[in-house]
């Protein structure tokens, strides 16, 4: 399994390299000038050109590209063009916020979604099933930012139960949780919709299988059938769905960070984009891509944990 993980990571490297190249080019195709962004409109063209030079933006593109790759190879994400702060430091600050948001989102999704999925599958074509299906379809039709706005209007503006915005004071866990609740709920509800649907259909597939019928025929009581036989086998597709939709969730987290004005990777990215901070932008993109690659790997590896029949070669 370890060898498999290593090989998967090695295979990811060419993909990552292509990603890096694309990001590097995309970022620089965009118009805009970080030197102008720093100096403001008052600065003369002369001063802007001088700063561009000092920032190394006048160097040929291939040279900047090699510098970028060389830096990454040494684990150096570079310094923000705008503030001069090491990007690694900015990311280190923002990442925990994004991680806690996405993980809580996934957690809420799993905790609510799997039981709901199993339940609706068991009540197939009855009222709870219709209700669950309609709600989950509505849930996955919700743009995350809109759900966030509605939750904010209700819980923060009208009921004043939670803060509207921000990430909470670092070092104050209670405050952090209060700030985390609404954004995580937003992502969690959307995740719940996805997971409910998939758990339901995975369960239905399994419930039709022969061995389940056999188990029932043997006279096992229903709970035993559901949990010992059916759910266990439905787990693989469910895990793969959690993996796949976690990527969707990461995308959604950007929007939610913007709506709730939470610090985080998404907000960092949009900020870097607005200021044309090439270095920060490309590094953040690399981190996102890495995120997704690791997530896919984890998903694959988890198959083995729930099903010993899966072999990694």
């Amino acid at each position: 399994m370890f060898a498999y993980a290593v090989r998967r990571i090695l295979i990811s490297i060419p993909i990552l390299l292509i990603v890096l190249t694309i990001v590097f080019i995309l970022v620089r195709v965009a118009p805009g000038d970080p030197a102008r962004a720093i100096l403001g409109d008052y600065a003369s063209q002369e001063a802007v050109d001088a700063l561009r030079k000092r920032m190394g933006l006048d160097k040929p593109l291939w040279e900047q590209y090699l510098e970028f790759l060389w830096g990454l190879a040494r684990g150096d994400l570079g310094r923000s063009l705008i503030s001069g702060v090491p990007v690694a430091k900015q990311v280190a600050y923002a990442l925990p916020y994004t991680l806690e948001l996405t993980f809580t989102g996934i957690l809420i999704g799993v905790i609510l979604g799997v039981p709901l999925g199993v339940y609706t599958a068991l009540k197939r074509n009855r009222l709870p099933d219709y209700l669950g299906r309609t709600l989950s379809l509505a849930g996955l039709s919700f743009p995350s930012f809109y759900l966030g706005i509605l939750l904010m209007l209700l819980f923060a503006v009208k009921l004043r139960l939670f803060p509207t915005m921000g990430g909470g004071t670092p070092g104050d866990p209670v405050d952090r949780l209060r700030h985390l609740f609404l954004p995580a709920l937003t992502l969690g509800l959307i995740m719940t919709a996805y997971i409910t649907r998939m758990s339901r259909s995975a369960m239905l597939n399994v419930l039709n299988e022969d061995y389940v019928r056999t188990a029932r025929a043997k006279g096992l009581h229903e709970a035993g059938v559901v949990f010992r036989h059916a759910l266990k086998n439905a787990l693989i597709p469910i895990i793969s769905v959690v993996g796949v939709y976690s990527v969707v969730l990461i995308g959604g987290s950007i929007m939610v960070e913007i709506v709730f004005s939470r610090p985080g990777l998404g907000k960092l990215m949009v900020g870097a984009m607005m200021q044309r901070d090439y270095i920060a932008l490309q590094s953040i993109m690399v981190i996102y891509a890495g995120f997704v690659i690791v997530l896919n790997l984890l998903t694959d590896l988890s198959y083995g944990l729930v099903d010993p029949r899966v072999r990694y070669r």
């Binding site: 993909i15 990603v19 995309l26 970022v27 950007i254 929007m255 891509a289």
Partner: peptide
């Protein structure tokens, strides 16, 4: 198919933002 893998390794929002920034 490699290119497809690469594209699919980004969340839609991330790639969408990048492309729109580049294109205007």
């Amino acid at each position: 198919m490699r290119a497809v893998d690469v594209m699919m390794s980004f969340p839609d929002e991330v790639l969408g933002i990048m492309i729109m920034v580049a294109l205007g």
